[in-house]
Design a protein around this nucleic acid. Structure first.
Ligand code: FES
Ligand code: FES
Lengths: 162, 162
DNA sequence: GCAATAAAAGACAAATTTATCTTTAATTAA
DNA sequence: TTAATTAAAGATAAATTTGTCTTTTATTGC
């Protein structure tokens, strides 16, 4: 007899990894401040994007190594994005640096490679979605994202956490 | 000085979890066989979809508990999907059972909830993509996927692994 | 030079996901 | 009833991801 309908999600899975989510939110926060000429420290970043500070610090290291964010040590130091860079940096660069490209290039159901010649059953439908995702990630600049936050249209954390 | 450009993906992340990928591939394989009136055992499943057998067995337990796949113990037992069920079962049921719904409902950059009233910077772009993903998962039946494999148009594993 | 500041680097630790192995329960056939 | 078969359940282990803590390095101001 089959009684049990709808257990739920043994894995709680987001589109991107936590590391990537933090990386994106952090980059946007830093960009909004850089546009006002303000460098921000890791403490502020973690507070403003509501993320664990030491882990966020690790992610910042990845982003700086990839040349996405610039960092300065010492008094008055912190993280920033130059006015030129903020216009050219795309969301996809952050995703690539942290989660890699499989999300928009790999086979949706895990075949070792996605290929037109040897497609999996979801290949053609998935291709469309991945394509849209890829397009969006490639087109969206850090500046776009940051300006929306600066204007107060968009937010980097949920409201009132008391 | 900033020398280092483009490190790569500290996380190798697919769209779905391994568990979910195996679950989808397994379900499709079982469905193709059920349509020929054949029950398949866990051994065949794992072999045909190129997945680790014991782990795949665990996933089958989840799918049977959710009423997606039917199982029979004992001699001549194995896994199957009824001719009626295969027409009504949607891809989304498998994803929900294993990865949950955050991938097509949750905020793309990890805000605790995705909300129109308090949107994150990628909200409106992401909504479109998630919507398309949701639509695809909701519409695609196991039968569609299985029939493509049966006809030989689609595949459940990569070629020649010697 | 010296103290203060702040990120980088490295070593750990916890949690989650993936994978394996053993025992149990159900079913069939003889 | 017994033996064979096959999935379910449970315990455990490995790998990956997430999170923390300490030490080092670079920079600034004095
Ligand atoms: S082969 Fe699976 S998505 Fe292309
Ligand atoms: S709030 Fe982030 S996607 Fe809707």
């Amino acid at each position: 007899m089959q009684t049990c309908i709808s257990l739920y999600g043994i894995n709680k899975r987001d589109m991107f990894s936590k590391a990537c989510e933090y990386g994106i939110r952090a980059s946007i926060f830093i960009a909004t401040n850089s546009s006002k000429g303000i460098r921000v420290g890791i403490k502020d970043v973690a507070k403003e994007i509501d993320s664990p500070e030491p882990f966020t610090a690790k992610i910042m290291q990845i982003l700086t190594k990839n040349g996405i964010i610039h960092s300065a040590k010492g008094v008055g130091g912190g993280f920033e994005v130059s006015n030129e860079a903020v216009k050219t940096i795309k969301l996809i660069q952050i995703v690539d640096a942290i989660d890699g490209d499989k999300i928009y290039r790999g086979c949706g159901i895990g075949l070792k490679e996605c290929s037109e010649a040897h497609p999996c059953p979801v290949h053609f439908e998935f291709k469309k979605i991945r394509g849209l995702l890829h397009e969006m990630l490639s087109k969206t600049t850090l500046e776009q994202l940051a300006s929306g936050v600066k204007k107060g249209d968009f937010f980097l954390k949920t409201l009132n956490l008391e």
